[in-house]
Design a protein around this nucleic acid. Structure first.
Lengths: 334, 334
DNA sequence: ATGAAAGCGCTAACAA
DNA sequence: TTGTTAGCGCTTTCAT
């Protein structure tokens, strides 16, 4: 293998052709003789020629790169999404540029501007949990810049969106708990700026209703920090204790593990025995203590679908007229 | 915020200057008057001008992009490393392009060639576990292309390397187990093409020796698939059973969780009670069942150090004469 | 079917 | 201090 960086000019010189002819041969243009094409291709192969993607990008005004914004890369769920994105990008010959917003709106915006100006061809993103009006995103979308939102999506404007069936997750959680004999079901949720948490709460309420249970506000605890704040979680649990719940539904990945951690820190037996159902994409729920029932989102598929949707838009000949919202089924793992 | 893409030419025209003057003003060149500079900067600000990084890259022959190759993005440890890399890249104004080798040498090589030809300015990578001679990598390194290896590093040639103190991890695992009263200590390890696994085994042996225990080959099980293969792990455990170990040291992240999963699947009480120490970067070891002692690698720091080293080399005026190997301390979490 | 030449947006050597 | 110009490597229009 050679690591020389050859240019079209090098090939042209070697074969006594013009760069345009070489370019045409390499791009399999119709206006080229079989013979010349073969000669060029053979030589290119021989020296392991690779076009300079930067020069091509400058010329073509596209970079074959897609930008990704998540809140934290090292979050289970997001890293699985990225895995899905990367798999599609790889086969479609796109590069993936990863960034993290750390749940900070301002940084998110900087990243969007940066990636946009960096000439990514499109953006895959999930919103940060900080409160924000996403008008600048709406503008971008409306101007035809390809963006696909996943997981936490904007609700005030239309755009391509890929989400899990969050409401159904909440609903099924309750049904499951009821089936297991629970009669007082609590709920821990995160920041309600996020579509996901709101939808899951809706499902939760619906589940209670359809099973003839009343919805009680005191059965719900809101952990704004999403489970990463120990104190917040412990407080929530202690406050919830009086409710004497025998089942609980937890709305997010970090919330679920944070709940279990807090439970282990507090004397476990001071709390009434109860069943736990929680959203989590951990690959090791089966070794969690206490045991829980997991609601899994098809994270890899979510990344793949989002990536496909994005690439389709990037490569589309005509502007999008209808935005798509893909809702993927969740899965309960016992 | 405006999303128009302005060019230097636009600014030049608006201010009645030449593009070079504008360029110089924007780059804070010394050969420019304060006045003009201010004028240009003010206008650029006003229209939210961003240079076209692709054009700049073409001109400067560098892309401000670094490529990253890991085996799986969604692996705890690697996603934490990526988090570290991203944090440094962000502050140093580099883009990060993420790819995964899926432990396949051939794909790894394709990725290297691809990223190299894609004009990344440097590469951060960990070797895939498949057996391979990394000659092509050696060539690249020797030709001065900036590559920093982390975690699983090549041993046949010198290059920048950032690793954890794997041997010490093995050593401390044994010391810990002995301190806890264990007298028969087993070991589960992964693919021995990987430097990490070999080093940890060495530490294990050293620990036994310094405590006056003999090293017995039958106390060690080799799981080639690194813990992702259930059957392999279960077989290992069953074979190990006769050894009647009262302590075990496990060499990797997936191996550790895989071990716990297998333990839970097999009837847990059919196996003699024992203490477990394992390498893992899971953030939720404290809810694992059975309880274990974790050996953590400073993954985020590893990513940061590797990224810094790489960027230093990329931006260095002179070729590297001495390659650095950074060994980071591990941490035991009880 | 092939070549010459312009131009994508930027930087920098050279001229003024 | 500022402007003119060439050129990074590629694609493509226009000539031949």
């Amino acid at each position: 293998m050679s690591f020389e960086k050859y240019t079209l000019k090098d090939i042209a010189k070697a074969l006594n052709l013009s760069t345009s002819t070489v370019s045409r041969a390499l791009r399999d243009s119709y206006e080229i003789s079989e013979e010349t094409k073969k000669k060029v291709l053979a030589y290119a192969q021989e020296i392991n020629f690779q076009v300079n993607p930067i020069a091509r990008s400058l010329k073509e005004r596209r970079s074959n790169t897609i930008g990704v914004i998540v809140s934290e890369i090292s979050n289970n769920f997001f890293s699985q999404i990225i895995e899905g994105i990367e798999s599609i990008a790889y086969e479609r010959n796109y590069q993936v540029v990863i960034t993290q917003s750390h749940e900070i709106v301002k940084r998110e915006r900087t990243l969007v501007e940066h990636l946009f100006s960096r000439s990514v061809d499109g953006l895959l993103m999930t919103l940060s949990s900080e409160d924000h009006e996403a008008q600048y995103l709406e503008q971008l979308v409306n101007r035809g810049f390809p963006i696909v939102f996943f997981d936490r999506v904007p609700e005030t404007f239309s755009a391509h969106k890929v989400i899990a069936d969050n409401a159904k997750g909440g609903l099924e959680a309750v049904e499951y708990l009821v089936r297991k004999g629970c009669r007082k079901i609590a709920h821990i949720t995160g920041n309600h700026n996020l579509s996901t948490n709101r939808e899951r709460l809706e499902g939760f309420k619906k589940g209670l209703k359809s099973n003839g249970f009343p919805f009680e506000e005191r059965a719900v605890k809101y952990c704004q920090s999403g489970g990463s704040n120990q104190l917040e979680m412990e407080t929530a649990i202690l406050e919830l204790k009086d409710y004497e719940y025998d089942g609980i539904f937890i709305s997010g990945d970090r919330l679920t593990t944070g709940y279990l951690q807090a439970l282990n820190r507090l004397s476990p037996h001071s709390i009434r025995e109860h069943k736990i159902v929680g959203f989590t994409n951990s690959k090791v729920v089966d070794i969690f203590n206490p045991a829980i029932t997991a609601i899994k989102q098809p994270a890899i598929e979510m990344g793949q679908r989002a990536a496909r949707l994005l690439i389709a838009q990037i490569e589309a000949k005509y502007p999008i007229e209808d935005y798509e919202t893909i809702i993927l089924p969740i899965e309960m793992v016992d």
